[in-house]
Amino acid sequence: MTPVFVISLALIMFAIGLFGVLFRKNFIVILMSLELMLNSSNLAIVGASQMFGEQGVQGHFLVLMILIIAAVEVAIGLAIAVHMARTADTVEVDSLSELPK
């Protein structure tokens, strides 16, 4: 289970998440794919930290921090989703384009 395998898996998941963010119109699904991308970077860090043995603890600590960031992100993201649903009663991304392009 070389780290190369783990990190490349993380990159593939990152690419899927990126695709999801760009492709989907539903704000909730975009939030989920963002979550996916953050999670894949976590995986990459853990995979990498295995290579450095004792020093690897830094990586784990960062993963912990990213968990916190992801949690706050979901909280605010969903608050905005509800906010959006109430004022504009839709969760579509494109349908909300009153701002003149």
């Binding site: 780290p3 990190i7 993380a10 990159l11 990152f14 991308m37 894949s40 970077s41 990459a44 860090i45 995979g47 990498a48 930290s49 290579m51 450095f52 020093q55 830094q58 990586g59 960062l62």
Partner: peptide, 11 residues
């Protein structure tokens, strides 16, 4: 993600 990859190089 960039930081993670750099981490894999520098440790």
């Amino acid at each position: 993600m960039g930081a993670a990859l750099l981490y894999s190089i520098y440790g």
